[in-house]
Design a protein around this nucleic acid. Structure first.
Length: 840
RNA sequence: GCGAGCGUGGCGGAACUGGUAUACGCACUAGGCUUAGAACCUAGCGCCGCAAGGAUUGAGGGUUCGACUCCCUCCGCUCGCACCA
């Protein structure tokens, strides 16, 4: 039997609104809690069950913390700038703002229907001028601090589209969507100097309560390594170049050097005989994208000799200089010393081009250095005065020697690169920047903000390849003090708006500052941040970077923005595919016999597997459908019941039905078929109190550990146990729905009010469990022999060893063993748990 | 290749700091209710075995009175990174 969720759910959603039940107060309180969802991009496709998972988890925490007396900040907003809306605008000939507004209103309606306890008074979108005004303001701070600059950098330029593409949009030199060719081109772009914060971004990871995997990914992305820069002079010339190496101890084993194809010295040092070969190679390498280079990494090494020789600074040896694209211009100095004996890549290259391989680190094992590189530890050899040193000592001593001779120094290197911060697009934050005729840059002042997005005829680049904003020349041309300027026509990337939104939520209406000091002091940092792993690196790194800059400006009081991070797992789904590879909708298939699925209509067999939800696989579950059929409470509870929050889990419609039955059973516990209340004013029985207090205890601790699946299982036990008893004491039911409320808030409110609860259950003080009830008065002990359980016996709680031992001796197995003349050698007794007999 | 995580019934999963393996849910079986079905209720339900009993948490080994839990080796799956010198 069903319960009337269709009436209950909208009713309580309205009551929460009327009561402003979830409004966070910007006033000092003893305890605050800031629980934040990674705010969504409001796509046209609407809310996904994957969103619902994270949002339900954060909502449970928010509701529980509120009931536990915390001042809770739980906001929601929209990360609404970005490419999809702009593409839709081009396609449909509408303004992206209009499309965004529609999508936002759809998203919001969907979120509301799920009963999330957001403080909607604090809602904003990154596209609101009153928000991006302050994004621009923060950009000016970055500019003032010298952290924003323009540079010529290679980008993926697509002539057909007239825009720059992200690396992931390019494959095999083509735009993945249309197949239009893409070329690498140097363009003047805005960059943010995130590398200036590399050390702090790395070191402060230690302050965070984050999943180890995310910390590790950030650490790898920053990629700090220690080594040395070594200068190599070109033989018979004044020219020299610098290499970076992490193995200065192997300097005597350097048998050649390699420059990246883009290295500025390549043309200069190439000998006339090698001129054309080198030019051809450089040209060929230039048009290979990063992706191609990566694929090529698994294949053959390529390269060309420049004809030039370099001098090894420690022994004056003449070694050839090559050009090869296995050396990247973007890392280190774009040049390396190659030590084939102790580096796999150099070894492969040396083998291919017959370059010498000289071992300079000894190995304890017998190895053939001509066959494979040795990168392990050992003692230096073939290295003059450094022979016999360990690798670690060798590194230090060689660096010291280089520094004395002025031809090298110790150096720390990072993989992290500066952040390419401009896009040739319309739907993003305009830069608060003017340029004069000479290209000189002038930042606007605070009073000029916001620089609003102008009207344009079309959201496409101009005919001569300028960004869309250049279509509105009235906006672009600015006269100040009689001088003519042009506005910057690039816009900021989508990341910009999401870098600091958690701060704006603290003080969203402020029109004097991005947020007040008081608000930031009250709410910062975010106590719990929930979202998907897909943001493990970029969003979280960029946000941390901006936060640290704001910290240096004295605008925030914590070093880090997000104290605790939690990544929910992905919700997967079964898909059904026939032998032709065609997918079938789950409604169109049935399980004919265990494990064997067929198409219902035709009887054709299909294979089933668990995959990511996607339209093409016909396995997408739409939250709207679930809410219509089973209600928001069922959806919320099911998603939390599926399994541990951080794991990937497959959607199972039957599981959802099981949860729906649980809520229906609860409903029938207090309402009969005719809708008459079964609640009474009786005193709860001992039995009832016991299961209630066990439930309060378990649910409370499980919520703190984000173990929602086990909390729900305990609440199921409560309902099962209650249905075996005769009375329905109101006070007991009230306490139960209080702990249920964070999970299934609508049905909890309804039953709370039926049971005579005062006000809203979501605002009622969280119940405390009474230990005297939650403790069992009889226990089952396992009687083990040699650690194997032979019997289970019931005893009074805290029964002593003697009592248990006496009973154990009467157990058949034990009795037989003793009768056979065996004796008890040792007794291990753990109160209320086990009695283990060691018999010989 | 490197790094991280995971592996428990037919399925999703539970098991606190080493102490009753399989809680809770699904599926399934039998019975009740019903003209019938749905829904609901009751009981059963990991494996082998008629039973006594035995083996069992990916495989193998170790520590321990006792291991899903700790250690070692291996296998499988998932994710991230990848010519970063």
């Amino acid at each position: 039997m069903s319960y009337p969720f269709k009436e209950i759910e909208p009713k309580w959603q309205d009551k929460w609104d009327e009561a402003q039940a979830f409004s966070a107060k910007n006033q000092d309180s003893e305890k605050k809690y800031y629980v934040l969802d990674m705010f969504p991009y409001p796509s046209g496709a609407g809310l996904h069950v994957g969103h619902v998972e994270g949002y339900t988890a954060s909502d449970i925490i928010a509701r529980a913390k509120r009931a536990q007396g915390y001042n809770v900040l739980h906001p929601m907003g929209w990360d609404a700038f970005g490419l999809p809306a702009e593409r839709a605008a081009v396609r449909e000939g509408r303004h992206p703002e209009e499309i965004t507004k529609e999508n936002v209103s759809n998203f919001k309606q969907q979120l509301r229907s799920l009963g999330f306890s957001y403080d909607w008074e604090r809602e904003f979108s990154t596209t609101d001028p009153e928000y991006y005004r302050w994004t621009q303001w923060i950009f000016l701070k970055l500019y003032e601090k010298g952290l924003a600059y323009q540079a010529d950098v290679p980008v993926n330029w697509c002539p057909a589209l007239g825009t720059v593409l992200a690396n992931e949009e390019v494959q095999d030199g083509k735009y993945v969507e249309t197949g239009d060719p893409v070329e690498r081109r140097n363009m003047k772009q805005w960059m943010l100097k995130i590398t200036a914060y590399a050390d702090r971004l790395l070191d402060d990871l230690e302050l965070l309560d984050w999943p180890a995997g995310v910390i590790e990914m950030q650490r790898a992305w920053i990629g700090k390594s220690r080594g040395a820069e070594v200068d190599f002079a070109i033989a018979d010339s004044e020219t020299k170049f610098t290499v970076f190496t992490t193995r200065p101890d192997t300097l005597f084993g350097a048998t050649y050097c390699v420059l990246a194809p883009e290295h500025p010295l390549v043309t200069q040092i190439t000998s006339s005989e090698q001129q054309s070969a080198v030019q051809d190679y450089v040209q060929w390498a230039k048009n290979r994208s990063d992706m191609d280079r990566q694929l090529a990494a698994e294949k053959e090494k390529t390269g060309v000799f420049t004809g030039a020789y370099a001098l090894n600074p420690v022994n004056g040896q003449k070694i050839p200089v090559w050009v090869a694209d296995y050396v990247l211009m973007t890392y280190g100095t774009g040049a390396i010393m190659a030590v084939p004996a102790h580096d796999e890549r150099d070894h492969a290259f040396a083998k291919k081009f017959n370059l010498p391989i000289v071992q300079v680190i000894s190995s304890e094992k017998e190895i053939d250095i001509q066959e494979s590189a040795y990168s392990g530890d050992g003692k230096l050899m073939n290295s003059d005065s450094f022979n016999g040193l360990s690798v670690a000592e060798g590194k230090a001593k060689v660096i010291a020697a280089l520094e004395v001779n002025g031809c090298g120094k110790g150096k720390e290197q990072f993989k992290l690169r500066d952040w390419l911060f401009s896009r040739q697009r319309y739907w993003g934050e305009p830069f608060p920047i003017l340029k004069d005729a000479n290209g000189q840059v002038y930042p606007l002042s605070e009073e000029d903000l916001p620089v609003s997005l102008p009207f344009v005829e079309e959201y496409k680049p101009t005919a001569d390849g300028q960004p869309p904003l250049a279509r509105n020349q009235e906006w672009v041309q600015v006269t100040r003090d009689g001088k003519n300027f042009e506005r910057e026509t690039n816009t900021m990337p989508q990341w910009a708006g999401s870098c600091w939104y958690y701060l704006r939520f603290m003080d969203p209406k402020n029109n004097q500052a991005p947020f007040s000091k008081e608000a930031e002091n009250l709410w910062g940092p975010v106590d719990l941040y929930i979202g998907g792993v897909e943001h493990a690196v970029l969003h979280l790194l960029y946000s941390r970077f901006w936060h640290k800059v704001l910290y240096d400006c004295g605008l925030v009081h914590t070093k880090e923005p997000f104290q605790k991070l939690f990544n929910q797992g992905m919700i997967l789904a079964y898909s059904y595919r026939d032998k032709n590879g065609k997918y079938h909708h789950p409604d169109d298939v049935k399980e004919e016999s265990p494990g064997k699925w067929v198409v219902t209509k035709t009887g054709d067999s299909v294979v089933t597997q668990v995959e990511k939800m996607s339209k093409s696989k016909l396995n997408v579950v739409n939250p709207n459908d679930v809410v219509a059929q089973y209600g928001a409470d069922s959806l919320r509870v099911y998603e939390m019941f599926m399994g541990p929050l951080d794991r990937d889990k497959p959607w199972a419609q039957n599981g959802l039905v099981g949860v729906f039955k649980f809520l229906s059973k609860l409903w029938r516990l207090v309402n009969d078929d005719k809708g008459q209340s079964l609640l009474d004013d009786s005193e709860p029985t001992e039995e009832q109190l016991k299961v209630l207090h066990q439930t309060i205890k378990k649910v409370t601790t499980d919520i703190n550990n984000l173990s929602f699946n086990t909390a729900i299982s305990q609440m199921m036990i409560f309902v099962n146990e209650m249905s075996k008893t005769k009375t329905r004491p109101k006070s007991l039911i009230r306490s139960f729905v209080q702990v249920l409320a964070p999970f299934a808030p609508h049905i909890a409110e309804e039953i709370w009010s039926q049971a005579g609860g005062k006000g809203l259950v979501c605002l009622a003080k969280w119940p405390e469990h009474d230990e005297s009830y939650s403790k069992a008065d009889s226990v089952t002990l396992a009687i083990q022999v040699m650690g194997k359980t032979k019997a289970k016996l019931d005893f009074d709680a805290d029964a002593d060893e003697e009592t248990v031992l006496t009973a154990a001796k009467e157990v058949g197995f034990v009795k037989n063993q003793l009768a056979e003349g065996k004796s008890i050698r040792k007794v291990i007794f753990v109160k209320n748990r086990i009695l283990n007999l060691i018999i010989n």
